[in-house]
Design a protein around this nucleic acid. Structure first.
Length: 572
DNA sequence: GCCGTTTTCGGCCCGACTGTTTTCAGTCG
């Protein structure tokens, strides 16, 4: 995604947030929020658009187009700057605490002058919120729990923020280096990233280091020499750049990709073979002669191992599997033939049916499911009539896409008892149904387990969407006896979703491995709400790889006829 | 502020849940 779109979207979203704190018109605020999503999800660079073209973007009218024009010319939006002088940034940060919205944030700011999360936590502990209208013991409790949840992710960022930054840095430095790539936890596709590691190969590090320090989004140079420079970006993320001689590339990439536990294991193997492995290469321990270092493949090969894909490098059994030749042939983005979960502007998506289908076609998919929300998620205002009308539009649109089979589906809501929207008659009209938990997140594990089991036993539920319903850093996963749920999913032929949204990545990789061992099949979906969300598929696939999945484990790598047979579900 | 097979004004994302109240405000999806 173009950086301008993200920055402009963030400014418009900030405008919405600030207005909600100052008590602006609710409809206006929603209009800004919708516009922010539209900008972020817009496929082309908005900084290249004229005011007239800006207005053609859905949800962007004259007023917001003018603000975007302001952004294109000045790099900011005047009204945002003005509101910032009234509401400190810390107050807006307060609204990111779960259960604390704009009204309560304004109250603690105006009554007690609190404008940071730390101050708020201290004030609660000192009992200074007592007596404040609308704040009771439970509220205090919830705020403290929310702060704790946020702090548990620490300074780490979601994978898409790190990946976008790393891609940009690699693109900027590549012309100056013989090779350039990101390594570290990002290359291993961990779900959150603490700092970004970039590796470059060159005989002349200095120009690369200088270019790196001069990047526009670098706010602070933390330190640096000839081999390594560390900076902090304007968004607070630390980036380490290491430059190595070209002949050390493979060993360096292996070393800086980690994980540390994986590296300990590979170095042990080297030692036992009379070798020494470092970031500079694989050496003879006796003579110190360099043996190999140019590619990762050479390094692993000389250690008697096949190349191990980075997402597996966690010392979670990959060394043993490599030694006995049982490493999985991991699923890749190219293996995917379809996407089974997507939304349009009929519910909370920002793109039309036609735009979403065009994007799916551009991905080279051979089947694509439209799965808008079902009526029990009341805010979406879904009706039988709307769903049936959408089906007609899909059937008509199909004629334009001979190579792409369009499936009509829905994302059903699993209610507290495990029931879903609509009766059997209506459900049987869909090609595919995803079913997800969207409410009652705090049931007991027993209730939650029963709920999922009942959903899996429903012959019209094919995929359990984002099963843990977590939002990384914002909402804890729901609690269930997952082994029990997975056994039921395997028995009933219900797939578990791997939702590719960077703040979901759900199922997470550890549970994917558990589920796979119990015979579960998976669907790697984008859950796209905008054209641009299709790009998130790389994170879902990365998570699947961390879960050791092969194409055979993933139903949307299968040819359509095999998928359809799966969707028929076995009769109990 | 956006939008239009209800077309330049009037509707739009409303109902459930929680925690605070004692009839409802705030938050969330």
């Amino acid at each position: 995604m173009a950086r301008a779109n993200d920055e402009a979207a963030a400014l418009v979203q900030e405008l919405a947030d600030l207005l909600s704190i100052t008590g602006g018109d609710a409809f206006k605020i929603r209009a800004y929020e919708k516009a922010a999503r539209a900008i972020a999800g817009y496929p082309d660079d908005i900084s290249a658009l004229s005011p007239n073209d800006l207005k053609k973007i859905p949800s962007i009218g004259g007023a917001i187009a003018k603000k975007l024009e302001d952004y294109n010319q000045t790099g900011t939006i005047r009204q945002v700057e003005e509101l910032r002088t009234q509401i400190p940034a810390g107050v807006r940060r307060l609204t990111t605490i779960p259960t604390l919205g704009p009204k309560k944030a304004l109250a603690v700011y105006e009554e007690l002058g609190i404008s940071s999360i730390d101050e708020l936590a201290a004030a609660i502990r000192e009992g200074r919120l007592r007596g404040l209208k609308g704040f009771g013991a439970k509220t205090e409790d919830n705020i403290l729990r929310g702060i704790e949840l946020m702090e548990s992710t620490g300074e780490r960022v979601l994978i898409d923020a790190a990946a976008d930054l790393a891609d940009e840095i690699v693109a900027a430095l590549s012309p100056l280096a013989e090779r350039c790539a990101f390594a570290g936890s990002l290359r291993r596709m961990r779900e959150t990233i603490g700092d970004v590691d970039v590796l470059a190969a060159s005989r002349d590090p200095r120009p690369i280091m200088e270019a790196f320090k001069a990047l526009p989004y670098v706010s602070e140079v933390i330190g640096g020499g000839d081999k390594k420079t560390s900076v902090r970006t304007t968004r607070g993320l630390q980036v380490d750049l290491r430059v190595v001689p070209p002949e050390s590339w493979g060993a360096a990439l292996q070393y800086f990709t980690g994980s540390q536990a994986h590296n300990v294991r590979t170095r042990e193997i080297a030692v036992r073979a009379g070798l020494k492995l470092s970031e500079y290469g694989l050496f003879d321990a006796g003579t110190n002669d360099l043996i190999v270092s140019e590619t990762e493949e050479q390094v692993y090969d000389r250690l008697g191992l096949p190349w191990i894909a980075p997402p597996l490098r966690e010392d979670q059994g990959e060394i043993e599997a490599a030694l006995d030749g049982s490493l999985p042939a991991l699923v890749t983005v190219d293996d995917l033939k379809g996407d089974l979960h997507s939304h349009t502007d009929l519910t909370d998506g920002t793109a039309s049916l036609e735009e979403m289908v065009r994007a799916a076609s551009a991905r080279g998919l051979s089947y694509y499911a439209i799965t808008d929300h079902a009526p029990n998620l009341f805010m979406q205002r879904m009706t039988d009539e709307k769903m049936l009308a959408q089906r007609e539009r899909i059937r008509a649109l199909q004629a334009e896409y001979p190579g792409l089979t369009l499936l009509h589906g829905a994302e059903l809501n699993i209610d507290p008892d495990g029931e879903v929207d609509w009766d059997v008659g209506f459900l049987s009209g869909f090609d595919i149904c995803v079913a997800s938990v969207h409410s009652h997140f705090t049931q007991t594990p027993e209730e939650m387990t029963r709920r999922f089991v009942r959903a899996c036993e429903n012959p019209h539920v094919h995929v359990i969407g984002h099963p843990m319903a977590r939002l990384i850093g914002r909402r804890s996963p729901v609690d269930a006896d997952w082994d029990e749920v997975f056994r039921c999913a395997a028995r009933t032929g219900t797939a578990m979703e791997i939702d590719s949204f960077p703040d979901r990545l759900d199922l997470p990789s550890d549970l994917i491995r558990r589920a796979r061992r119990l015979g579960v099949k998976f669907a790697i979906d984008t859950d796209a709400h905008a054209v641009g969300h299709h790009r998130n598929i790389r994170y879902g696939v990365g998570t699947a790889q961390r879960g050791w999945l092969t194409p055979d484990d993933v139903i949307n790598t299968w040819p359509l006829d095999r998928l359809r047979a799966f969707l028929a579900k076995p009769t109990p």
